[in-house]
Design a protein around this nucleic acid. Structure first.
Lengths: 241, 241
DNA sequence: GGGTTACAAATGGTATACCATTTACACAAT
DNA sequence: ATTGTGTAAATGGTATACCATTTGTAACCC
């Protein structure tokens, strides 16, 4: 558990699960509080299963209860917290089974993204994804797990974005957000790093060839490997690492 | 446009997009308001593109602004309305392109559901889906489009539920909610009714054979047919039916 | 020691007041 | 007739008060 103090309110820029800087759209306080809470969940400041005291947290973030309540509504709809009537909010704590289910969904979403990206990506988008891939390889050589994880996520988001299917992008982001913390934590313990790199090589090759069906297959299988890593990590944590 | 007065508050039972009666869980007023608003959107009482006046509507539904605001937050997170800072809520009005994107996502979700249902469905679940299919055939013979549509949706939800993938069920429901109104409206004009029945026959055959890959393929293709119907309907409405 | 009950405090849900921003409309100028 | 300006009303965003429900703790009894 990290002992960091609560973050100041999110300004709308960050490299969390949704990754995008929303500089163009003005945000309400409730939206900014929601973004801060997302961060706090991902980084275990608000650990899974913990109670979220609305008044306490509003005080810490120096906002009144109303935007805090609205923020918690947002997060509840996103399934990052569970709101129990008259009992308040609990940070979601996905079981291994639920993680597995989510990953199977993410697998088909990424497969669809792969197929549509192979057809629709601009050349510039391909180049950028390739550049991210090289940066990720560099972080692998440096054994910098945090940067590696973030770049890995950026590549996947880049592929989804290159599908030019906006609805898919949003739904993918939402599923990803539910999995982000678990994957972030499991990345710290990843013992199959080298195999993941090989898979990414294959992904990039199929993408550069614009081979939709092959890319779809590899990306779906890649999420199968993710399950393998994540389940190891969950198992290790449950047995008191 | 229908001229019905606003619904009284949802009690938590209904056959709208999420279909389930949540009798076991107590609901807050905000949740009940959200459910009523969903209904009003689906049934065009709140038409696409229309402004949602929070005070006006709260008055009509005889609730105060606070649960109305929370309800609108829920719907905004679900993308059924769009909340613009300082400007309020507008009912979502998905473009033809967006509908197409959503249907492609729904296609892969239903394909995954088909595969997992073929593996995981109980015999009782299969029997129930078959019963719904026969009821749907009966409504086809009676030319009862509304009942046909609802049964059709129940069959799809039944297949998703039979996958025993709870995460998939939720995500499917959410995508479906965004499409529900458009499909409901297009069902009223469906000129390819007979072909849809044939597709459903194939779906049921593959499901009963527990042939996962075949079921997946047919269900995904079925959504392709749905796009064909929906786009005809959108085109017809845009040209002043 | 364990179980039950009563009550105060904590906390969630809603209503309403107040402030901030946008919209609509009347009037003046060109 | 059209455009620009000012102002009041409408409406969104937040703060706070009040009510409803839950939780925690102390006292009592077996």
């Amino acid at each position: 558990m990290t002992d960091r103090p609560p973050e100041s309110l999110e300004t709308g820029e960050g490299d969390g699960p949704d990754g995008d800087a929303n500089g163009v759209a003005r945000k309400t306080l409730a939206q900014r509080v929601a973004a801060s809470l997302r961060d706090m969940i991902v980084q275990d400041i608000l650990p899974p299963g913990s109670r979220v005291r609305e008044r306490t947290l509003a005080q810490q973030l120096e906002v009144s209860r109303t935007p805090m309540r609205e923020a918690l509504r947002i997060l509840a709809t996103e399934r990052l917290v569970e709101l129990l009537p008259n009992k308040g909010a609990i940070v979601a704590d996905p079981s291994a089974g639920e993680v597995r289910e989510l990953l199977s969904v993410l697998g088909v979403l990424e497969a669809l993204a792969g197929e549509q990206a192979a057809a629709n990506a601009t050349d510039a988008e391909l180049e950028e994804i390739n550049a991210l891939h090289y940066e990720m390889l560099a972080s692998f050589k440096r054994r910098d797990r945090l940067t590696y994880f973030k770049l890995n996520q950026s590549i996947h988001r880049g592929i989804v974005a290159a599908s030019h299917n906006e609805a898919l992008k949003e739904i993918h982001a939402q599923v990803n957000a539910r999995l982000y913390r678990v994957r972030y934590q499991s990345n710290l313990n990843n013992t199959k790093w080298h195999a993941a790199i090989t898979e990414h090589d294959s992904i990039l090759e199929a993408l550069n060839d614009r081979n939709g069906p092959r890319l779809a297959r590899i990306m779906c299988a890649h999420l199968g490997s993710t399950w393998s890593n994540v389940s190891d990590s969950i198992f290790r944590q449950e047995n008191g690492a």
